[in-house]
Every structure is written in C-alpha cells, then in structure tokens.
Computed example of a mutant assay.
Amino acid sequence: MTNITLVRGDITEQEVDAVVNAANSSLLGGGGVDGAVHRRGGPEILAACRELRAGHYGRGLAAGAAVATTAGRLPARWVIHTVGPVFSAEEDRSATLASCYRESLRVADELGARTVAFPAISTGIYRWPMADAADIALRTVATTPTEVTEARFVLFDEKAYDTFRAALPGGPAGGTADGGPER
C-alpha cells in the first residue's frame, strides 16, 4: 500500500527517487513547476527531453501520458514528465487528469522508483480548481496498484496544502500531513 504524504514546499528540493514534472506537451520547459524543474535540474533534463522529441515523441507528449528522464542536478534520480489537461467547464477531462497520476506511477514502477514527489498537476496556468484536482489526485494515487511506497504531494503554498489536506482519503487523518519544514 502506498503511503500518501503532504508537504508544503518546493518540489525541486525533494530527496526522492522520482519527481513528477507538470510538463507542457513540448517537453522543452515552460513556467510553473515545469520551469522550476528545468532551471534547478539544469541542462541535462532539457537535453534528455530533446532526445525524446527527436525520437518517439516527435509531436510532443500527449495529455495524460508520462515519460521519464534524468533528474540532472535535482536531488532525485529521475524526473517523470506528465502533461495535465487544461480545465474546461464544458468538457469533463477528469479521466485525463487521473491518467497523469496513474501513468506517472506506472513509469515509476518501470524505473524501480519507490518514493515519488507529485505537484498539484493542472492547477496553475491550466486553471483546474484546486479542490477537484486534490480529490482526483489523492483518490487516483490511493487506488492505483503500484510498488511505490511513498507518494509525496508537494504543495507550493498554504492554500494548496490545506486543500489537499482536507481531501486526504478518510479526511485529514487519512494520510500524513507535514506542514513543517520541507524535507
């Protein structure tokens, strides 16, 4: 069973096997989490992403899919890039958001990663409502069969942290919430 933990902090500082990057489909960096991962991880991540684009992912990575690269200078072994969907009030894209988490766990299992740090995928520039995103993320990770022993949700600000904490399976007591210093 996967232990779900919550941490308020910077995902690029997490000492885990794999960090999940909320990437854009180009895989070549961007804003938010994606920009932070590329800046902190250094040119090795961009070089690996360019190799992916030169090969199987010539048209980019589809929303809901996941692929791994080196973590470069991050204190992790790998970065798992996944592309979240843009929120739409007219079209239910919840299955695509859930796929981001399932596919990231599948890639983590292929790599042998046991500790994985997740951001709140699609909640930034893609405008997914935080409460709904938290529910989808936590429910998906809690119910997806995986060898990952710790799924750490790293929330950048207090609002996101509080929203995820309230959505923990079984309520705030359903997982581990560490609002203290980053780890």
Results as ranks from 00 to 15, higher is better:
residue 127 R to F: 05
residue 102 R to A: 14
residue 148 V to T: 13
residue 146 T to I: 07
residue 180 G to P: 02
residue 180 G to D: 10
residue 35 G to V: 12
residue 68 A to F: 03
residue 35 G to R: 10
residue 63 A to S: 15
residue 131 A to G: 09
residue 178 D to R: 14
residue 78 W to T: 11
residue 155 L to M: 10
residue 49 C to F: 05
residue 85 P to W: 01
residue 27 L to A: 09
residue 149 T to D: 15
residue 2 T to V: 13
residue 22 A to M: 04
residue 164 F to E: 02
residue 30 G to D: 09
residue 152 R to P: 03
residue 66 A to W: 03
residue 30 G to M: 09
residue 158 E to S: 12
residue 46 L to K: 05
residue 15 E to T: 11
residue 66 A to E: 07
residue 12 T to W: 03
residue 27 L to G: 06
residue 183 R to W: 02
residue 13 E to F: 00
residue 87 F to W: 15
residue 173 A to T: 11
residue 145 P to D: 08
residue 56 H to A: 15
residue 25 S to T: 14
residue 138 L to A: 10
residue 152 R to G: 10
residue 88 S to L: 03
residue 35 G to F: 00
residue 115 T to G: 09
residue 81 H to A: 01
residue 106 R to S: 14
residue 15 E to L: 06
residue 78 W to R: 14
residue 123 T to G: 04
residue 94 S to F: 05
residue 78 W to E: 02
residue 93 R to G: 12
residue 13 E to W: 02
residue 181 P to G: 12
residue 121 I to G: 12
residue 31 G to P: 04
residue 102 R to Q: 14
residue 57 Y to Q: 07
residue 84 G to E: 03
residue 64 G to P: 07
residue 43 P to R: 11
residue 116 V to N: 05
residue 47 A to H: 12
residue 103 E to T: 13
residue 11 I to W: 00
residue 118 F to M: 07
residue 122 S to A: 15
residue 114 R to S: 13
residue 151 A to E: 08
residue 140 T to E: 06
residue 101 Y to C: 06
residue 17 D to I: 04
residue 37 V to E: 04
residue 173 A to V: 08
residue 35 G to M: 04
residue 49 C to M: 00
residue 35 G to C: 04
residue 88 S to R: 10
residue 6 L to C: 01
residue 19 V to F: 05
residue 168 L to A: 11
residue 144 T to Y: 01
residue 65 A to G: 12
residue 163 T to F: 02
residue 58 G to P: 08
residue 73 R to A: 14
residue 173 A to K: 13
residue 41 G to W: 00
residue 136 I to Q: 05
residue 105 L to I: 04
residue 104 S to K: 06
residue 52 L to E: 02
residue 165 R to P: 04
residue 180 G to R: 06
residue 145 P to C: 05
residue 144 T to D: 09
residue 95 A to I: 01
residue 107 V to I: 15
residue 176 T to M: 04
residue 115 T to I: 05
residue 53 R to H: 00
residue 7 V to H: 08
residue 162 D to K: 15
residue 38 H to D: 05
residue 3 N to A: 13
residue 8 R to E: 11
residue 162 D to W: 00
residue 54 A to Q: 12
residue 79 V to A: 11
residue 48 A to H: 02
residue 150 E to N: 14
residue 64 G to S: 08
residue 163 T to I: 11
residue 149 T to Q: 13
residue 64 G to N: 08
residue 99 S to G: 14
residue 130 M to A: 12
residue 178 D to Y: 04
residue 14 Q to K: 13
residue 169 P to Y: 04
residue 74 L to A: 10
residue 128 W to A: 02
residue 62 A to H: 12
residue 52 L to D: 07
residue 148 V to H: 01
residue 93 R to Q: 14
residue 39 R to D: 15
residue 121 I to E: 08
residue 81 H to W: 03
residue 48 A to F: 00
residue 147 E to H: 10
residue 81 H to L: 02
residue 131 A to W: 03
residue 6 L to Q: 03
residue 83 V to R: 02
residue 44 E to I: 00
residue 14 Q to L: 08
residue 151 A to F: 03
residue 101 Y to E: 07
residue 146 T to A: 06
residue 36 A to C: 12
residue 128 W to K: 06
residue 94 S to L: 07
residue 169 P to H: 07
residue 113 A to N: 11
residue 23 A to L: 01
residue 75 P to Y: 04
residue 114 R to K: 14
residue 132 D to P: 00
